[in-house]
């Protein structure tokens, strides 16, 4: 016996079947964020107000470039997933919700690309 209402059957909408990936992605990036954000905060304390040459020299170190690159990939993915949940919670209109989630996704990918490009440019310049 099915517990679905006749209207639900007629609409034919069921589970999206991909929510678990979002849930796990949010937690996986959260775990990755713990050491990476800690590295970022330590860097900010040490070099937050550094002059141009000092800041560039610090970021150009391969270990720092790699850690900061991983930091940006992880935080922007975490941000993308988190903001999507907030939008889906509060925006009732289908069109606005779709547009905002799309905007968040575009912004997150743009942010990842921009940060990695800048890091590479600084690092390769030495």
């Amino acid at each position: 016996m099915s517990l679905r209402t006749p209207l639900s059957k007629a609409r034919g909408l069921g589970s999206a079947k991909d929510g678990v990936g979002h849930f796990i992605g949010q937690r996986a990036t959260a775990i990755a964020n713990i050491p990476l954000v800690t590295c970022f905060l330590v860097s900010v304390v040490l070099y937050g107000a550094a002059d141009y040459e000092t800041a560039r020299a610090y970021l150009a170190h391969p270990v720092v470039t790699i850690l900061m690159g991983l930091f940006f990939v992880s935080i922007f993915n975490h941000m993308r997933l988190g903001l999507q949940v907030i939008i889906e919670d509060y925006v009732a209109n289908d069109g606005s919700r779709l547009a905002l989630v799309l905007l968040v996704n575009f912004a997150a990918f743009a942010a990842v690309f921009s940060s990695l490009f800048c890091l590479a440019r600084i690092s390769f310049a030495g």
């Binding site: 900010v44 304390v45 040490l46 070099y47 937050g48 550094a50 000092t54 610090y58």
Partner: peptide, 14 residues
């Protein structure tokens, strides 16, 4: 604590 440390270290200003 972070801000105190940053001010104490000069925030990397050389």
């Amino acid at each position: 604590g972070m801000w105190a440390a940053a001010y104490a270290l000069g925030g990397g200003v050389r």
